[in-house]
Structures are given as structure tokens and as C-alpha cells.
Write a protein that binds this DNA or RNA. Structure first.
Ligand SMILES: NC(=O)c1ccc[n+]([C@@H]2O[C@H](COP(=O)([O-])OP(=O)(O)OC[C@H]3O[C@@H](n4cnc5c(N)ncnc54)[C@H](O)[C@@H]3O)[C@@H](O)[C@H]2O)c1
Ligand SMILES: NC(=O)c1ccc[n+]([C@@H]2O[C@H](COP(=O)([O-])OP(=O)(O)OC[C@H]3O[C@@H](n4cnc5c(N)ncnc54)[C@H](O)[C@@H]3O)[C@@H](O)[C@H]2O)c1
Lengths: 221, 221
DNA sequence: TTTTTATCGTTATATCTTTCACGATAATCT
DNA sequence: AGATTATCGTGAAAGATATAACGATAAAAA
């Protein structure tokens, strides 16, 4: 019962964590009171054993013949991911992508609040995206301190990404959501999540390549 | 030498494939003629043995005391991912995110060409995003056939996602790049790549939770 | 109440992935 | 030319993750 233990803090394996995220999403979409490991599995595309094994890392336990209490499981996952706590975030780079992100209301459901947007283009300073006016980079330090900002989103062109990361880090930011294709070099205690769409593209293109290859083979064979 | 073999087509393990994508990106960023497994490793954040093992799945082979021929390795990776072949793509949902994607020139480097944008909002039909005018959904079938479109990007609200996916599938699309938080149900031969930003958010939030927990523990301990 | 059944929790087994170890080899040095 | 060295390729060992198996248990049925 790894979830129970207290010493030697059990870290949840990455693959399990990724599936727990899928369970979390599913649980927010359903109404029913109980759900079985098998139903969870089918809905997220895995198998029941895997689900039960994954849930081993949590405190929530299921009932034979009934399944898991949805509300309870949902709550435990919400706590695991801290989505009910609000995290303040700033975004740097008020361009096409940055504007889309600032305009997106969906992040609020995950306890994310964008409190300020920065850019280094003088023509953009003072313009509004939704409720937020675009601020100059010189205000960044002050805002981070004032609002106790914990996370920075980087949406600047690739070549400026490292420079912006350095600024964020030097102002105490410990988590970065990086939308650029740049690989950021940061200290060990800073956590970077890459949202590199080009890498997804490679997945898609590779799939197409494999499909073509297979078709050619089946014609020959 | 798995890469050489021809029967029983060797499939590249997912973790290896993910690292090969990183190597591909790195190789596009460097100028030098040769690179060692150790340098690749350091630059992408893994170790030399892993790199050498990964490259085992390719035909390219290294030279003792010198390393791998950058141009050759780059080319083989480009072929693996088919990034030099142009793939025609349509995008559905000309909203905030969709517009950002259509405006983004970077995808061209991966052999992706967005040939048309669709929306179901009559007020948006005929408006332009860059060079492309927004088309009504009724034109979708015709455009897919005419341009031999292989991939569809979905950028509509979550609740319309499945419906749009069904339309794409029924028009022969075999690859979907899904930017919505919906889990799409599609036939087996259709490949879906999810770009679900909410899931990344959970990663970030979970990191913050763990950090807080650790800090509390070290205070107690 | 007893039996049957669905579903859980957990241990054992199998598979997949990473790391280690080391011999082979091409370039450089003496 | 022969010795030295950096780096590769790969097979073996270790480690991590997934699947299978099965006994335990609560609910439902008999
Ligand atoms: N637009 C997309 O759909 C898309 C898709 C994938 C990846 N990306 C990546 O996201 C990033 C942003 O893309 P975009 O399309 O929004 O670009 P953009 O050019 O529209 O916006 C970039 C913004 O960053 C600002 N900026 C530049 N340097 C800065 C600095 N040093 N400090 C502060 N602000 C600075 C610019 O003034 C501009 O407003 C890029 O790295 C791009 O590769 C974008
Ligand atoms: N904007 C973001 O930064 C962001 C971030 C993460 C995820 N997403 C996801 O991306 C999707 C799009 O987000 P957005 O912010 O661009 O939304 P949006 O509302 O700006 O745009 C959605 C567009 O889709 C069109 N549309 C709606 N139903 C349609 C249908 N059935 N057929 C064709 N077109 C239809 C609408 O007319 C609109 O133009 C959503 O699912 C959202 O959850 C967006």
C-alpha cells in the first residue's frame, strides 16, 4: 500500500502519473456515483489491471462488486494535482500564441490564473488582451514579487527563449511552461514543461511514413 | 543491427522514438561535421549509452574516435520523420488558437502545409487568416479530395470535437492533431495526436504540490 | 441464510527499457 | 610503424513497468 506509507516518500512513476491525469479528466466528465476499474480502463484506453495498479498509489480504495467512489477518487486526484489551489502565473510574449492562451478561460479549471502579460515590443505595451494590459519587461520583477508568482509561460520567439528563461529564473520563478521549440537550460530546482508542438508534428509525420511503408510492403508481398 | 533487417519490421520503441525527435531537433541546430554520442547526450539531457543504443535502430553508424556524421544522421532522421515531404493539412475551428496556428510559419519546416481553414460560424466565413479565407464546413469534403489532404487539425470547442472528428474520418482523414481536451473515439486506422495543454498543466501543478510537500517535511524533520 | 458473482488488492511473472561493461577500431601521438 | 586513446557497437545485467493470476470480499440472488 504505497500511498499509505509515510517514510521514504513514494514517488509515483511517470507512466502512472500520466494515466492518473487521464483518470482525473475522465472523473470530471462523469456523473455516476461509482465506477469500476474496467470502465475507467475502457474509457481511457488501457486495461483494468493497470488502473487498479495505478490506484494503488492513492489512498482511495474500491469496493468489491461496486467499484470506486467517483467523488472520493476525483477529490484525491484534485489534491494530487493541486487543481483547487490557485497558482499565479505570468506570460511573456504577447504574440499570436500568447494572446490565444491569455484569452483562454479553460485554464481556470486547473487553478491557473494569469495575472500579467509582458512583451518587449514598445508598440504593444499598454495594449489590452482581455482584461490585462501588456506590460514592459522592466515591470516583471515587481509583479512577480507583488503577486507571489510561481510559474512563467514563455511564448516569445525561439531565439529569445533562453534569455527570457534566465530573467524568470533570476526573479525566483520555479516552474516554466515553455511553448517555444528551444531547449532551456535552467538550474536543477527549476521545473520546465515543454509544450513543443513541433515534436507532436514529428509523431504525426512518422505515423504517415510508417503507413506508406506498410502499404508499399503489402503491395509487394 | 535492427535497422538493417527487413523481415519482421522492427518497430522503434516509443521512448527511443521520443529521443530520436530530440536528436533531430539538435542536429538541425548545430554546424559541426561530427558529433559524439556523449555530446548528443549532454545536449539533450541523457547519457551516451542511451544515445548509442537508440542509434542502433538507424542505419547510420559512427566512427571510433570521431563520432557520427552530422549531415548523414540528420538526413536519416529527416527521412524517418518524413519532414522533407510536404503533407497537406486542413484546420477546423478558426478561433483564437486556430488563428495562431494558421499564422505560424514554423510548421513549414516540418513539411506541413495548411491548405484550408474551416469554421461553422457564418460570421467568420470569408474572413481571412493570413492568405487563407475561412471556408464553410460544407466545402470540407471537396477540399480534402481536391488537395489530397492527409491530416486534420481540430481547434473547435471541446463539445464539438467528436462531431468534427467524425466528419474528418468520414472524409478519409487518417491523422488528427487534436488541440481540444476531448478524448476522440476513432477507428483503429486513424491516428490521433493529442496536444492537450491541460495535461501539461497538471504536470506543472503536481510539481508545485510536491515541492510544497517536501518543504513542509524538511521543516518538520 | 447460503450461494453466486462481480470486482477489488496484491503477489508473481513477463516484457520492456536502461545501464553497464568491454572488446573492436579508427585516429592521433611517439 | 607501433603504442595510445577516444569512441563506437553490442551483449549481458539490472531496473522499471505492464500483464496475468488468484484469493478475498461485499453485494445480489437463490
Ligand atoms: N503561433 C503558433 O501557433 C505557435 C505554434 C508552435 C510554437 N510556437 C512558438 O511559440 C512562440 C511564440 O509564437 P508566436 O506565433 O506567438 O510568435 P509572435 O511573433 O506572434 O509573438 C512573439 C511575441 O514575443 C515578443 N518578444 C520577442 N522577444 C521578446 C523578449 N525578449 N522579451 C519579451 N517579449 C519578446 C514579441 O514582441 C511578440 O509579441 C515561438 O517560439 C513559436 O515558435 C507558436
Ligand atoms: N485558446 C487557447 O489558448 C487554448 C488552450 C488550450 C486548449 N484550447 C482548446 O482549443 C480549442 C479551441 O480553443 P479557442 O480558444 O481557439 O476557441 P474559440 O472559441 O476561440 O474558437 C473555436 C472556433 O471553432 C468554431 N466552431 C465551433 N463549433 C464548430 C463546429 N462544429 N465546426 C466548425 N467550427 C466550429 C467556432 O466558430 C470558433 O471560431 C478548444 O477546444 C479549447 O479547449 C485552446
Amino acid at each position: 500500500m504505497p500511498g499509505q506509507q509515510d517514510k521514504e516518500p513514494i514517488v509515483i512513476p511517470k507512466p502512472t502519473l500520466d494515466r492518473l491525469k487521464l483518470y482525473h479528466r475522465l472523473l470530471n466528465e462523469i456523473e455516476q456515483k461509482y465506477i469500476s476499474s474496467d470502465e475507467i480502463a475502457q474509457r481511457v484506453g488501457t486495461n483494468a489491471e493497470q488502473v487498479r495498479k495505478d490506484l494503488t498509489y492513492l489512498k482511495t480504495t474500491g469496493k468489491p462488486k461496486v467499484g470506486y467512489d467517483v467523488a472520493q477518487l476525483r477529490q484525491e486526484l484534485e489534491e494530487l494535482f493541486g487543481v483547487k489551489k490557485t497558482t499565479k502565473v505570468i506570460l511573456v510574449g504577447a504574440g499570436h500564441l500568447g494572446s490565444a492562451l491569455v484569452n483562454y478561460p479553460g485554464f481556470a479549471n486547473y487553478g491557473i490564473e494569469i495575472v500579467a502579460v509582458f512583451d518587449n515590443d514598445p508598440r504593444k505595451i499598454g495594449m489590452f488582451i482581455g482584461e490585462l494590459s501588456i506590460l514592459p519587461m522592466k515591470d516583471l520583477a515587481r509583479v512577480i514579487k507583488r503577486f507571489r508568482v510561481e510559474i512563467g509561460i514563455i511564448c516569445v520567439p525561439k531565439d529569445s527563449a533562453q534569455q527570457v528563461a534566465d530573467i524568470l529564473v533570476s526573479n525566483g520563478i520555479k516552474g516554466i511552461w515553455n511553448f517555444t521549440p528551444a531547449r532551456l537550460v535552467v538550474p536543477d530546482d527549476v521545473f520546465v514543461v515543454d509544450e513543443d508542438m513541433s515534436q507532436s508534428l514529428l509523431t504525426l509525420k512518422h505515423f504517415l511514413e510508417m503507413k506508406k511503408q506498410k502499404m508499399q510492403e503489402s503491395q509487394r508481398g
